[in-house]
């Protein structure tokens, strides 16, 4: 079977695109792998190829009380951000994609503004603002800072799914005798769960990995990315790549776990 020159060119470009995508994916994960390699180095100073490998820095990181506190701070922030962001963004997404109302077009654009804004500058601006209000910085103020950026992102994530929600379903339930609360419980929420879950996932992971907003707004508290940065700039120890790798693996585990859970729920019969 001979192909036309046209079809051959198409096949060539498809192959190029696949190769290029593979190469870029590889590049994206190269530094993450490098961090992993550095974390299993036995010595204090990194040289490649490694002379000896050991998990001792992982063990030290794991046992460190200081790092335990960092992780607790980061988890508390991410947890609180997730809960608040999901609630605000759920209604935000309803206003974005579900209801037709007078100010919707403008609202849709205003929501984007914090996303289209450099985070370090936003962090500094919040620092200034908290200061002007006479507030003490702590991880709670950082939670608020995270929300300013994460709520719009989660709103978009949820809105994309809400666009495909058929408004007639709610009306039908209402018409069939359901009260407003029953409509929400029996129809709206069950159908929108996937979007809410992915929104929660985004909120948690984006907060967990955020550095520029935390840097200026945590005050004396320190999150994992902040600590890593401080040690990178001054006082490298292999605990830096070790903790970095742990944070990455934790994020991957959360993502994977949620993905598998979602798949299991989807496969379940309608009963």
């Amino acid at each position: 079977m001979s192909l036309s020159p046209e079809a051959r060119a198409e096949r060539r470009s498809a192959r190029f695109i696949a190769l290029w995508t593979g190469f870029v994916v590889l590049a994206i994960y190269t530094p993450i792998l490098c961090g992993f390699v550095a974390s299993v180095n036995k010595g204090r100073y990194f040289r490649f190829p490694l002379a000896k490998t050991s998990m001792e820095w992982w063990q030290k990181t794991f046992d460190s009380i200081e790092i335990g506190m960092l992780v607790r701070t980061s988890l508390a922030m991410a947890g609180l951000v997730t809960v608040i962001a999901v609630v605000i963004a759920f209604f935000g997404a309803l206003a974005y994609a579900r209801y037709d109302w007078k100010g919707r077009r403008l609202y849709q654009k205003l929501v984007l503004l914090p996303i289209f804004f450099p985070q370090p500058v936003l962090g500094l601006a919040l620092l200034l603002w908290f200061n002007a209000l006479g507030m003490q910085m702590s991880w709670q103020t950082a939670v608020f800072a995270h929300l300013v950026w994460i709520v719009p992102v989660v709103t978009l994530v949820m809105a994309i799914q809400m666009y495909s929600f058929d408004a007639a379903l709610e009306e039908a339930a209402f018409d069939l005798g359901a009260s407003r609360l029953q409509v929400l419980r029996e129809v709206t929420l069950p159908i929108l769960w996937p979007g809410i879950w992915s929104g929660a996932l985004f909120a948690f992971l984006l907060s967990w990995g955020n550095f520029p907003l935390s840097l200026y707004t945590t005050g004396p508290d320190t999150s994992v990315p902040e600590w890593l940065y401080a040690k990178m700039v001054a006082g490298y120890t292999p605990m830096v790549p070790a903790l970095g790798s742990m944070a990455t693996i934790a994020a991957a585990a959360v993502l994977l776990g949620m993905g598998l859970l979602a798949r299991a729920l989807r496969k379940r019969p309608a009963q």
Partner: peptide, 28 residues
């Protein structure tokens, strides 16, 4: 898509530092 989204969940300074380990003298 997930492969491209995931790095967003890892703090950028961790990822940038990985490049330092890659490019530095005696690095990867």
């Amino acid at each position: 898509s997930v492969l491209f989204v995931f790095p967003l969940f890892v703090s950028e300074n961790i990822r940038l530092y990985g490049w330092v380990l890659f490019f530095i003298k005696g690095g990867v």
